[in-house]
């Protein structure tokens, strides 16, 4: 999408759509970071703030969907424009779910803040969150810059890193729980948080897959499913 449309109003609508997705992504990034600060600083107010911020993400999702429908109805987009609109309808769903994940994290944080800390895992969780947050940022950078290579790295390599963090945290928390049943309540909360972060990584992978599709016109999802069977 290097050249501008002859119709400047249409061009402006597409630009607005792109800006809206990026804005939504930056809100989600902020929510991930804040949820981790709320966890490590045991900050109830910050956790509440993240929960409130989710309303903005939800609103942006609805506004973006509406704009997509309006462009589809009025402009009949084709080729790269069509692919952009089609993926945007899906991108916002993934971004909205990421927002929900951070809300769930903050709900667990509020529960944990009522308990004494279970210290060591706090180091690994924020590291995992950083990795997940960087995935969201890089996916949206790829959307803006069209750097496919970056998006393709996300799909395989970077998601594995997040998955590996999850496995590590899960193992650690198991040992805490086996050591002392009193740890179970807190450990399961922490395990949930790790799971939400792992989900965020999966959603970011979806973003990257859609961005590759938008640029290349090639569906890179589910390579194994594709190999197994073709619908007649």
């Amino acid at each position: 999408m290097s050249r501008a449309h002859t119709d400047r109003e249409y061009e402006a609508e597409l630009r607005k759509l792109r800006e809206q997705v990026v804005l939504m992504g930056s809100k989600v990034e902020e929510m991930i970071a804040s949820s981790m600060r709320a966890l490590t600083l045991r900050d109830d107010a910050l956790a509440d703030k993240v929960i409130q911020l989710d309303h903005e993400v939800n609103r942006l999702e609805m506004e973006t969907d509406e704009l997509c429908l309006r462009i589809l109805a009025r402009r009949q987009p084709v080729a790269s424009d069509l692919r952009f609109i089609a993926i945007t309808l899906k991108l916002v769903t993934d971004l909205e779910r990421m927002g929900d994940c951070t809300v769930n994290i903050c709900e667990r944080v509020l529960e944990l803040n009522r308990e004494p800390p279970l210290t060591e895992t706090f180091v690994v969780l924020p590291a995992m969150a950083d990795a997940a947050q960087a995935m969201v940022k890089d996916a949206l950078d790829a959307l803006v810059t069209g750097n496919i290579q970056r998006a393709e790295e996300l799909i395989i390599d970077r998601d594995r890193v997040v998955d590996a963090y999850y496995a590590q945290i899960f193992r650690e928390l198991l040992t805490y729980m086996m050591e002392n049943p009193r740890n179970i309540f807190r450990a399961t909360r922490l395990q949930s948080i790790a799971k939400y972060l792992e989900r965020i990584g999966d959603h970011a992978t979806n973003l990257a897959e859609m961005i590759v599709f938008m640029k290349k016109g090639k569906d890179v999802r589910h390579p194994f499913s594709r190999a197994i069977s073709k619908t007649p």
């Binding site: 050249r3 002859t6 080729a79």
Partner: peptide
């Protein structure tokens, strides 16, 4: 042609980016 044209000129024409 209408989802993934191969030539940039086709893309520009059908998406309305022709001068």
């Amino acid at each position: 042609i209408f989802t993934k044209p191969n030539d940039a000129r086709t893309e520009d024409y059908i998406t309305g980016r022709f001068g």
